[in-house]
Design a protein around this nucleic acid. Sequence first.
DNA 1: TATGAATGAGGTTTCATTCAT
DNA 2: GATGAATGAAACCTCATTCAT
Lengths: 210, 210, 210, 210
Amino acid sequence: MTEDNNSCQTRHRLLESACRIFAEKGFHKATIVEICGEAEANVALVNYHFGSKRKLYDKAWRHAFTQAQACFPLDSGLTEKATGEERLRVFIFSFLNRLLDKGSAGYFARMMNREMAEPTPSFPAIHEEALVPTRRYLCGVLRGLLGAEVAEEEVFCCCYSVISQCVFLLHHLPMREKVLCKESEMYEKIDTLGEYLTRFCLGGIQAVRK
Amino acid sequence: MTEDNNSCQTRHRLLESACRIFAEKGFHKATIVEICGEAEANVALVNYHFGSKRKLYDKAWRHAFTQAQACFPLDSGLTEKATGEERLRVFIFSFLNRLLDKGSAGYFARMMNREMAEPTPSFPAIHEEALVPTRRYLCGVLRGLLGAEVAEEEVFCCCYSVISQCVFLLHHLPMREKVLCKESEMYEKIDTLGEYLTRFCLGGIQAVRK
Amino acid sequence: MTEDNNSCQTRHRLLESACRIFAEKGFHKATIVEICGEAEANVALVNYHFGSKRKLYDKAWRHAFTQAQACFPLDSGLTEKATGEERLRVFIFSFLNRLLDKGSAGYFARMMNREMAEPTPSFPAIHEEALVPTRRYLCGVLRGLLGAEVAEEEVFCCCYSVISQCVFLLHHLPMREKVLCKESEMYEKIDTLGEYLTRFCLGGIQAVRK
Amino acid sequence: MTEDNNSCQTRHRLLESACRIFAEKGFHKATIVEICGEAEANVALVNYHFGSKRKLYDKAWRHAFTQAQACFPLDSGLTEKATGEERLRVFIFSFLNRLLDKGSAGYFARMMNREMAEPTPSFPAIHEEALVPTRRYLCGVLRGLLGAEVAEEEVFCCCYSVISQCVFLLHHLPMREKVLCKESEMYEKIDTLGEYLTRFCLGGIQAVRK
DNA sequence: TATGAATGAGGTTTCATTCAT
DNA sequence: GATGAATGAAACCTCATTCAT
């Protein structure tokens, strides 16, 4: 936040618009004209403030990631004494919140959604700075549940199992928006959903542990 | 399929190229020039034969879906006496094969990968014709495992749990290509992976059933 | 000429306009819009026919060089028995004509004028294909005048002496156009000028030969 | 030069940067941002101090010309008794030094190199203030060598012959940088080169004089 | 004097689509 | 059926210049 000093309002407005529009349309379909239009700024200002569309995107995903982390920490409210099950539950709920938030805390997840299907040149940096740390945290939680004798590879697979089920919801967002699939209304209720996922995953983990 | 009569070779070549390139690059980044280049056809022929890029895409995903179904039926090799567990295992393996196939049987899955993250106007039709039937089949399998007293909603959730874990692999393909994440090498082995997923999902289902 | 088949008139018009405008304004100040305007063609056609502005330039200088060679061959009218002095005179006159021609035979020289002061990425190819052969021809002529015992380096210097004096005229064109320097009116008379240059250079060559 | 009072350091830094960058890239390819970047000044200051890019260029070439004159006077070290040949030799060496100097004494020559190929609106003033006086001086030297009965026009031609051969070297600099033409290595040695040019020109002059 | 921000015009390129043959 | 040429809209980027402070 110190380097992105908001001394310039327009610059900040551009960043906000960029986050929203990149999240909504992805890097390629988002246009500078649209971002500037929303920020009520001249198109040349993107290049003035950020250098290029790509560099703006780099600032934007970092900005969005910071907001997601701040709003929904992965270990929110956990004490040192929390059990592995509690840690997993909290992770799942935090992750779901990040994924389903319709405001600025959800921008990063939506950007990642596109990034996975159609990576931009920024992907390696995103992976390094945002995805790997998250995965590492979850692996730690899962190791606690699986015990020491389970192979690292299986911890890793469980990690993907948990994440994939959460992410698929987001993956599913456009489907729901387009198709209005009434059966999936329950997905709106994060509580119900989180409980279900926790239960399912704990069952799966149990089975993996043998 | 009768209208797709291969009376015209060029038209067929265009369709094949379109499948490959739409699968590789997605609808938006694929260009007509490239598709025609690969098919050794004139650019005007896309519009002549199909009307527009969008209509070509419509033919292409259907074509790709047909191929995926033909190569990897979801109930491949099952007899009437097969248990629920066997049915689930076969589903997972078939689905994984569709997802990871590098040839024409994998085109549809890769198109869907993009379609989920960035739906085109064709999405509703795809959903209706391809995704819903698949989901319905899997729900049947899961109902057999969960028993009659479990709510429909929970069957539905399990269905998403199974599918999401499979799909995430594909979702992860570009990431793996870009980042060369060595830890996930085991994902190459469909056998190992399928067994893992079957075990994890059966555990999860067990937990949901209580 | 065989690959630049003029089967397409617009393409040919574009090439002609490009030669004229690149010669007049140089690569950087010439704009695609202007070239297409003169050729009465859509701006996208440059990229359609040639791929990019740079590739158009590549076609253009080659086209212009071909025209210059065809109009004013360096050995125009020489027989096998021609003396060294006659060969030098013919070279100087041909070269002057290429430099001072106001039509298409002079385009290449004017392009080179810019290319020398501000080389484009095409320069190495130009040098290789156009400049080196010309220099090699003149060096042959000069070797005949200087005799066998003069060092290669000195032949080379004389070559530059001859060329530089010719080229400077062209170099001087914009000056004349801008300043209307009446003293230099004689430069218009290629005859007078060519005789002067021949005399001066022969004197210089004599002095170098000792 | 009194108006160029160095009361303002920033203004002076801008002028210095402008000289260097205009010499390196020419008027058109040099950008205000780059000049100001090198001078560590704000982009608005060019217009504040000089009015426009063009007016900055006007100050710059004059500044550069002054430096060239100060470093390498055309009659450096000559006494009143010096012969015409000595005067010519000194002129050629001074001129070569101005052309080939890599520091600030060479900026003007490099600006002229571009100016000749692609004149800016400043050209008439440059011609009047810088080029004509130099030419006039050389004509005086040549008149001494040619004698009184040779026509003014021929003195003028000889003047161009001398200058053109010198200038061509600079004209050739970018070519040498791009193409690494090893044959011309000797051109690096100003001594060798100056002697050669003096000899060649004296021979030419002799021939013109008949 | 100096600054950071803002502007607008203009440039190249890409691409789906259409036209005439 | 098929072709090559042509079109126009839209995208990103650059840059000299100007404004408000």
